[in-house]
């Protein structure tokens, strides 16, 4: 829940508020929870909806400063990648990827975070986002194509 909120909002404090609200809402709604949907997808759906509300309100907010580090500012943590080519600066690549994720349309960003970052199945992603599996696959396909292009460009910049 925290990973989703932080990646969506890029603000650790706002993300903490969202997760808190989501947990309280879950507590209030728990008596009516029938278990038809998985607990995990239910919780993530609440977080995703709350993040959408906040992002909608933030539409006209000022842009990020030049030196904005998307991972540090979001309160996220980057694990060292096993077998990573030492010639390529992992931190720089991760920051470039996070910036590219931020540029994705919201629907695609949600799908990428849920599927690739949190490891949900296609069915779970579809359930969380309230869409059908083909729609999830389509969003992921377009999102990954965009991210691959951005990553390649970042690597070329890095090498040159």
């Amino acid at each position: 829940m925290t990973t989703l909120a932080r990646t969506m909002l890029r603000d650790a404090d706002e993300a903490a508020d969202v997760v808190e609200d989501a947990l309280l809402r879950m507590r209030d709604a728990a008596p009516g929870f029938r278990g038809a949907r998985g607990l995990k997808t239910w919780a993530l759906r609440i977080v995703a909806n709350r993040c959408r509300d906040l992002l909608r309100r933030r539409r006209f907010a000022a842009g990020r400063p030049e030196d904005f580090d998307p991972i540090v500012e979001s309160g996220l943590r980057a694990d060292p990648i096993e077998g990573w080519d030492e010639a390529i600066d992992q931190g720089r690549m991760l920051a470039a990827l996070e910036r590219a994720i931020d540029r994705l349309p919201r629907e695609q960003r949600e799908a990428v975070i849920l599927r690739d970052r949190l490891g949900l199945s296609y069915d779970e992603v579809a359930e969380t986002l309230g869409v059908r599996v083909p729609a999830v696959k389509s969003r992921l396909f377009r999102a990954r194509a965009f991210l691959r292009t951005e990553l390649r460009a970042a690597m070329e910049d890095h090498i040159s």
């Binding site: 925290t2 808190e20 947990l23 996220l76 943590r77 990573w84 991760l94 990827l97 690739d116 990553l151």
Partner: peptide, 20 residues
Amino acid sequence: LTRLLTAVRADAEPALWTRV
């Protein structure tokens, strides 16, 4: 791309449960 995407995550926040 997959390895980069999965390498980033948020740590659990112990104070969160206290606040909730």
